[in-house]
Design a protein around this nucleic acid. Structure first.
Lengths: 222, 222
DNA sequence: ACTTTAACGGCACTGCGTGCCGCAAGACAA
DNA sequence: TTGTCTTGCGGCACGCAGTGCCGTTAAAGT
């Protein structure tokens, strides 16, 4: 039995990680978050309690373990962008990259979503995690917005992009995370661009309104 | 000595609360957050450890104890608004109300700000708290935005308002929280209106645009 | 002066998170 | 095969956060 549990080089660490996440989601869903101890999760996954903390920093991390990976993806998009790309296009590309973390395993994402929005501790954890994205976006936006009011503009655009990302993701997950809905998920997210002063050349409110009317007229008359 | 510590009806509960907050801020600043136990805080404030948890829900709450009060203020503004007020004006009024929680004791706010942005645990806690405001704003905005894309618009405007609020507050605190700077603090916050659709000065233009959109949508959808 | 109420301190308990150590298993060399 | 080295795991013990419970005490009410 010890030998069976020790055969990690065959299964690999990633497999143990998945088992722990699955056990955590199952137990949190069935018994409730507060009623589930880390001992329960570890035992259910067939490992020791100490091993859980070798894979996750805390109890909440067992639910959203891909957080750093998402941040790294966004940072990668910003780092590898060529200088000529419009800011809004770059920001949208960075945001869309994060969707893959959820579309990789839609069913698991749906279960995590349900848990995250039911358990206050997980909800607050999620808020803090989302804010890490917001800060990352805002920081890169700030570096690209050299003009006056750059701080305010970067903060507003960064917060808006992250908020739109969550709205789109939430709608998709609430609909059961259908594979056919990924396109509309991304389209919904991109809708944020029309609500923001991110388009270069559109500086005044009057210009934005005029452009909005123009867009609507074009989409209305195909 | 016991009698001295028990004289609570004279000092009042609010006084004990302030002593606990002051002790927590002092100790967190001097020794560090992780190096300070609740026993330390309670002893420094002259009360028992158990009493700390009668005033605050958790260790982090000793730093930002006015959170529920701020949420209640915002909700109150939304609840007592008359129907004719433009949405953006209402949202700005609600946001400005929260500033009072910081302008009441500027020096304490500066110290809390420094701690909040140095200690990761407090930073995440702050993010979760800010998100409570964001959700509250978004919910009320959603109720006032009946048209299409209401979810996305409410999310973007709500997130933007909260983000601008934080930018303004942060600048003011970083400048040492001068009493003379409160006016510019509010003015900075109001700057968000010019970056968003819904500027109260352009209500009639927006209304006309909405009407145009409605006509276009009716003519476009068979 | 007596009873009631409310707040406090102390105690004990659960559970998270961490440091430490011994151990078992695979990798590598002789 | 045999010995050594490295890696990952389990177990143990510890500190501390947070909670339930209870005895006590001071203040309010009668």
């Amino acid at each position: 039995m010890t030998a069976a549990r020790r055969g990690r080089s065959v299964e690999g660490r990633a497999e143990v990680r998945r088992e722990l996440v699955a056990a955590a989601v199952d137990l949190f869903t069935d018994r409730g978050y507060d009623e589930t101890t880390i001992d329960d999760i570890a035992t259910s996954a067939g490992v020791g309690r100490r091993t859980f903390f070798r894979y996750f920093r805390s109890k909440e991390d067992g639910i959203s373990p891909d957080h750093e990976a998402g941040l790294a993806r966004v940072a990668e998009v910003f780092a590898t962008a060529h200088a000529g790309e419009p800011t809004m296009s770059l920001v949208l590309r960075a945001g869309e990259t994060v969707f893959e973390l959820y579309t990789d395993d839609p069913q698991l994402s749906v279960r995590r979503f349900a848990l995250t929005h039911r358990v206050p501790a997980l909800r607050d954890r999620e808020s803090a995690g989302v804010d890490h994205y917001r800060r990352l976006f805002t920081r890169h936006l700030r570096a690209r917005l050299g003009r006056a009011d750059g701080d305010l503009r970067a903060a507003v655009i960064g917060a808006s992009v992250v908020a739109a990302h969550n709205v789109a993701l939430r709608e998709w997950l609430a609909a059961g995370a259908p594979a056919a809905g990924v396109a509309s998920l991304i389209a919904r997210f991109r809708g944020v661009a029309e609500l923001l002063p991110g388009d270069p050349g559109l500086t005044t409110v009057a210009d934005r309104l005029e452009a909005a009317v123009g867009r609507l007229e074009r989409t209305a008359t195909p």
